[in-house]
Structures are given as structure tokens and as C-alpha cells.
Simulated scan of single mutants.
Amino acid sequence: MIAQVVPVLFAFGANLGDRGETIRSAQRALAATPGIERFEASALRETIALTASGPDPDAPRYVNGVATARTTLDPHALLDAMQAIETTHGRVRDIRWGDRTLDIDLVLFGGRVISDDRLQVPHPRAHERDFVLAPWLDLDPDAVLMGHGRVADLLARIGDTTVPLSHDDHANAGSKVVPGRSGGLDAQG
């Protein structure tokens, strides 16, 4: 039996430690995961921390990015791989929307809608988060968020408060983290 290959979109965020390097390390680990191929990462962007109470200018700022890939993993196996990478990078799940060393969300899994106690796809708040939409638009100017429309229109509607991460390697924006790699989530915060 041949496994189905499904396009996916990941979102990454970190506001503790070496934020950019943590995200790039997690991206390399995810790209090297058996069952994931054609991994392509956006440039990284920085934004104010978003907490359960709203934007917090006093909290450490976040670095965010997105990546597209194709996978043969089922959604929950992919989620398990994402959470293992988060744990390896020091992720602690004690405060919802709290400071974190790494957050990886599964925004899209092909055209599937998934809603269970572990996973919601499409990500239920991606359409209102400039820190997801802006790097996604940088990566794919024609992107469409299932159920919400064109990413460019969504970002225009909510506004873009993100700024390019000044020390991010923009030459690598949109590059494949592990070219040609093939093989075999965090509850959405």
C-alpha cells in the first residue's frame, strides 16, 4: 500500500532563549523526520507577545515563522513528532499561552478538518494572527487559508505588526531546510 502524501503548514514560535536558533534547529529536526519531505521555511519575524489577556509589551518578544512540507504521516503521528521536538528544545506546558522556548503548531493538514481532544486543524486562530499570516505570505504570495480565504486579504484586514528578524539569514528565506529529504502539536495555543 502506498502512503498518501499530504501538504502541510507548520507555524513556529519562541520567546525564550536563542529564539531564532531554536526555531531553525527545530525546523531542521522536523525536516529530517521520516515521512516529511520538501520542507521549506519562511524568513523569521518578530512580534510582541500574545498572552491569554491580549498583547503584552512587557513580556519577551516572540520570533515566529512558518514552513510548508509534504508528509506521509497521519496527523497524530505528525503531532507526536512535533511535540517530541518541542520537548527536546525545553518546551514546558504549564501556562496556556505562556512564555516558551518553542511552540510548533500544525496549521493545515491537506484539506482535512480535524477536531479532537489533541488537535484542531485548520488551526482555529491562524486567520487572526499576523505572526502566522505575514511569514506565510512571504513564503507563498498566493496562499489560501482553508475556510477563511486568501492570506493576503486576511493580513490586510487585521494588519501586520511583525517585523523581519534583523539577524535572520534572509538569503535562506524560502529555502529548503533539508533538500530532497524523504522518509517513511502541541494542543493549539
Rank of each mutant, 00 (worst) to 15 (best):
Q27G: 15
E46P: 09
A52E: 15
T101N: 08
V63R: 00
N64D: 10
F39M: 12
V5W: 10
T88I: 07
G20P: 15
V63G: 03
E46I: 00
V121D: 10
P34V: 13
V8Y: 05
R38C: 15
P122G: 10
G17N: 09
I104L: 12
V8I: 15
G17Y: 04
A11T: 09
P7L: 11
A31E: 09
P60G: 01
R19D: 02
P124H: 06
L16P: 13
L78D: 09
Q120Y: 04
L16A: 02
F131T: 00
A14F: 01
L108H: 01
T101W: 04
F12W: 14
G98E: 06
A126R: 02
L78E: 08
A3N: 14
G17I: 08
D58T: 05
D142K: 03
D138E: 15
P57E: 01
P55Q: 06
D117E: 14
I104A: 09
D103A: 02
R125Q: 15
I85A: 08
D18H: 13
P55F: 02
F109E: 07
R38G: 15
R112M: 15
A77N: 04
L44V: 09
L119M: 08
P7K: 04
G98D: 07
T68E: 13
D18R: 10
M146V: 11
A143N: 07
L30W: 06
R93H: 08
A49W: 00
L133F: 06
D105L: 05
P60R: 00
F10G: 12
T87S: 10
I85R: 01
P7D: 15
V121N: 09
V113Q: 13
P135C: 06
G147Y: 03
P57Q: 04
E21Q: 13
N64L: 07
A49I: 01
D105T: 05
R91N: 11
P141F: 02
L137P: 01
E86Q: 07
R19A: 05
S115W: 02
E46S: 12
T71D: 15
D80M: 00
P135N: 03
T33K: 05
T87Y: 04
A3G: 15
D138K: 02
R129F: 07
D142I: 05
H123G: 13
R28S: 15
E86R: 01
P75W: 00
I95Y: 10
T88Y: 03
T22G: 12
I48D: 00
A11R: 04
T51V: 07
M146L: 14
T33G: 11
Q4K: 11
L78W: 01
V6W: 11
D116H: 02
G98N: 06
A59T: 06
G13M: 07
T72L: 12
V92A: 14
H89M: 06
L44K: 03
Y62S: 07
G65F: 01
V92E: 15
I95M: 11
T88C: 11
D74P: 04
A14D: 03
S25D: 15
S115A: 14
N64E: 11
V63M: 03
D58Y: 00
V132H: 05
E128L: 08
E40L: 10
G149Y: 02
A14H: 03
